[in-house]
Amino acid sequence: MDANNRPTRRRFLSTAGAALSAPLAAAGAYAATGPEAVGVSPDEHRTRLEDVNAIRALYRDYARRVNHGASDGAIDANVHRLSAGGFGEDDAIALSPDGQTAAGVFHCVVHSRTPIETDCTLVDMARAQGEGYVERSQPSVIEAEFIKEDGAWKIRSVTRRPA
């Protein structure tokens, strides 16, 4: 690897068109967006593209599960829906040099429904019609870490912060 094809944050940003968070950049990660960007062989590059696609699919599946009621530490039970935060132009997936871990940054809008915690007739009635909550939509960033185990990508952690 020479200086011209060594992955750098500057190179990644220029090729991926993405703004990575500081933790992601600090990890020294890079994205498989083109052979010239990562300095790997075509086979390795294809593998990395497949990894990125698998991670992207994993994230979509995660979002789909959240939209069907799943919850975890980052997405609390009050969140009922994630929707796209744009066209994905600010999203990024960066693989570690050994290709066994990855970090992803996904922009989205988190729609939450916080139950109104009051014991009164109006809230009872609102609940009876499937409501009784305060609905908020907040542009957010999902930061996820991924790990490859037995050839399959899994989500290791998810955190959420306001965009």
Binding site: T114, I116, T118, L122, V123, A126, G132, Y133, V134, E135
Partner: peptide, 8 residues
Amino acid sequence: NYSPGLTS
């Protein structure tokens, strides 16, 4: 409107 989300 009593509070956010609670209007009758």
